[in-house]
Design a protein around this nucleic acid. Structure first.
Lengths: 169, 169
DNA sequence: ATCATTAGTGGGTCGTCACCCACTATAGGG
DNA sequence: CCCTATAGTGGGTGACGACCCACTAATGAT
């Protein structure tokens, strides 16, 4: 297990313990662990950037959904993104207040509120996308282009396999 | 060489909103997003299994560190794992109470508490490792052996690139 | 008109997690 | 000895994310 075993606990002038994190090989061998750590980092860094604009990850997800699928009722966004209706209402509220989306009562069914991106929304989304890609650049720095493409393909397949199962973002 | 990740051009103005989550291509194109989602799922599923035993992820991490690097002071675990000293104390406390680790005052420096895994601890760790691999099997289900190895290699390199930067597990 | 159903909203709860502070005990240097 | 630094501990805090409930408005069927 351990290439450099143990006891030799030199009381002073400690040789072993590094100041920088040096994780157990046992954990590094687990994909679930690596996935968790890397995903966490990517998420955190992206969230950090968005926070600089007063936005959260859900804001971006909603904008993306609207841009990709066109104007739609909140109900549909809820189904698509797997977000709680109540939470979506809050996100939509904030995005509307900032002028990134518009909400209008559906005239054929006045219960529904149809949400659509505004020009400013699309502009913002483009910037957010750039931010996300910048984060990607940081995180995937050790990989060359071909490797990134390979990774992306694998991740996509894994993601599909997950189904919409898990809740949350 | 090039698996085409462009199966479906965006279905515009879809008539029937799907009951199952159908995420925006724009997001699926972002590795930061996929990483975040997949990592989250892997983490959640592993945590769920550990919770069944009344354990958390940190417990496993600590056990792994002890198994891989041998008995050591909490101070060293703190440095290695990048965990808060106070939090580690709690984890160690719980593990000791359950009989998975032993704590003993270091006689050469009575401030230090040397922690070591017990037989039960190693046994438990083996089981936890099996659980983790089971989760892995679920998550990576869509990939064959060769692909999993490829993914693992890529993830390892990416993880190294992160350095010990981010905090937390 | 009545009733069950659906869309949206506001408010609040709960569990998790990382972080920080105050405190004790010990060590080591002057 | 005194003084400062370090190891460990207990307790608490604040942010965050997911979830849930009660309520209103509108719909569609009977």
């Amino acid at each position: 297990m351990t290439p450099e075993p143990l006891p030799a606990p030199a009381p002073l002038a400690a040789p072993g313990p590094p100041p920088a994190p040096d994780l157990p090989p046992m954990l590094l061998d687990l994909d679930s662990y690596l996935l968790s750590r890397i995903g966490r980092t990517a998420r955190a860094r992206l969230a950090e950037r968005l926070a600089g604009r007063g936005l959260r990850l859900w804001d971006m997800a909603v904008l993306a959904a609207l841009a990709d699928f066109g104007p739609q009722a909140q109900r549909d966004l809820v189904r698509r993104l797997g977000v709680d209706p109540s939470d979506l209402a809050k996100v939509a509220d904030q995005l509307a207040a900032a002028g990134y989306v518009e909400r209008a009562r559906d005239q054929t069914d006045r219960r529904r509120v149809t949400v659509s991106v505004t020009g400013a929304g699309r502009e913002l989304l483009a910037e957010l996308d750039a931010e996300a890609r910048a984060v990607q650049g940081e995180v995937l720095a050790p990989l060359d282009e071909a490797e990134r493409r390979a990774l992306h393909g694998l991740l996509l397949r894994v993601h599909e396999g997950l189904g919409g199962a898990g809740s949350g973002l």
